[in-house]
Nucleic acid binder design. Sequence first.
DNA 1: CTACCGGAACTTTTT
DNA 2: GTTCCGGTAG
Length: 688
Amino acid sequence: MAETPSVEQLLSGLNPQQRAAVTHGRGPLLIVAGAGTGKTATLVHRVAWLIAQGTEPGRILLLTFTRRAAAEMLRRADGVLREVAKTTGRGPSSRVWGGTFHAIATRLLRRHGRAIGLAEGFSVHDRGDSEDLMNVVRTGLGLAKTDRRFPKKGTCMAIYSRCVNSRSKLEPVLEKAFPWCRGWEDELKRLFDAYVDRKESLGVLDYDDLLLYWHALLGDETVGPRIREQFDCVLVDEYQDTNTLQAEIIHRLRPDGQGLTVVGDDAQSIYSFRAATVRNILDLPKRYPDTTLLTLEQNYRSREPILEAANHVIGQAKERFTKNLWSDRQGGGRPRLVACEDEDDQTAYVVRRILEHREEGIDLRRQAVLFRASHHSILLEAELTRREIPFHKYGGLKFIETAHIKDLLAFLRLAENPRDVVAGLRVLPLVPGIGPAKAHALMDMVGGSGEPFAAWKTWRPPEAARAAWPALVELMTSLAGPGKNAGLPEQVHRVRAFYSPLLEQVYDNPVPRSRDLEQLEQIASRYRGRRTMLTELTLDPPSSTQDLAGPPLLDDDYLILSTIHSAKGLEWDCVYVIHAVDGNIPSDMATGSPEEIEEELRLFYVALTRAKNWLDVCCPLRYYNYQRGTSDAHGYALPSRFISDNVAKFFDRVTPGSSLTEDDEPEKRQPPTGLTSETIRRRTKGLW
DNA sequence: CTACCGGAACTTTTT
DNA sequence: GTTCCGGTAG
């Protein structure tokens, strides 16, 4: 088969397996792509190839794990297309439907939701909002004060979510994942029923609903076929991390598998806590018997010694389908296994290595520190700040989840959807003199249409609320009514005018919080409208203030700190894995069952395979237990159980030793004999 | 009955 | 830095 020159050009630089994947026809295609095997490049080229072959960009659906990944792929696909555009005349891929399952679900539901009785203006609750609503219902049913302690709101939400996402009944879910909550079946069922009703009456969808409604939409006799016909090709990235509900959505989108491409790596499945199941990727050939399976095994990312160590780590997994990866990037040193005395030692070591590498010409942004839990980097962050080394942290508590940001957004959400109790219960108690009880009563007074907050005007506030009450009523009335069409920055500004004085009373560190709010006002102009801003912020929350401020300037350089989960799909020249001790990797919270431990092993594997050229794994052996007060709160840890003797052989063992650490703790290091400060002064004077 | 304060306990990973 | 609880004051 003779290829046209432009297509040949598009395929140049791909290896035979990648090429086969890119040019595969319409039948269902499963690409099992190991870490660093050019998975993204393959997917990008496939999108470009499909377009070059005549598929309209708007008829391609690209589902990725994060929006960041989607944007990156579309950007790169544009690049590839531009290269070949001269000869094919095909346009850019920018109209490809790309995004997360949740983001795409929102778009489709706004467009077609009417057909299944969904109001177009529905609002989306994030995890925190959902928990709050769950709590409202939980208290309403009197489950908050029972003889035995009833599961807390977060646990209730987790159980509910798992039922929805794994599409299974309550009993097995409790049995398998929440054994300590058995015995509350009846109460939980009542609670979930009430929660569902409540969402319905408020016109609110939570994360799980987005998937659930999308699924339902596809099952509808009239709309279902319309959506199916909208797309010729569906491509799914990170398929190993999809859950049962998502797999069924895919199945309903492409019932016969025609035009379906799925990419994943069962060795990198790390989201089972979110009800993801590896079975989706493993069983795809069973679901579609004519599936073509292609495997990518050549790793272009890591040097061979790093890959060898990583292969031996994942070699300990019980069930695995992908083969070992290989690389022709020979040479270079082996990865390091660093036995640190304690966390301070680890911090000093990591900082020193980072600076050494920077001296050698590796920018900070090409280096990353990875850890299991977000709080593992606290000490390091403090040290980086002290040394004025810029860094950017991914994962963990997000900007959007801080109390003051949620407060401010709650005003906007309440204006957008006056029935949103969760928003109301956040806004109202900010006024002195109004607590949960009065807030509840006030929310019951809110009307449906016309002027929703009219009843608040005649309400007689308690003495303490006299001053602030009329201002709040005026603010809300205006935001929900005539002020609705004001510019978004203007709206935020008005909320800020009302909220700022309260902020100073409620929080003891109002200054940085106030700055965050100003920032929010600044970026508000970026969004098309209030509803868009609110949904985008819940579906794609910026991970930090810096992120929110926009892409950093090209010339400023910063180190990456990230949870291993957030590091998925990314790569750096130098990777430092910290806190690689038992209890952290694997986490104590995840050692209940063999399956959980297996997932922790894969997580460790993901961390190691992020490294291109240098890899340091640090194990601080003595740690400080912050929960146990000040005296004698030290404990001892062992290196991660995943670094067995057989694995350790592939690392260089390093001991930083106290002489290499920085001079922060004088009591630890005696000055070498014979050298006194007096001699130093004398020597110094001899210098000039 | 309601609001508010202080203390205690806990904090995995994320759309 | 929260969230959850119990006690106290209005």
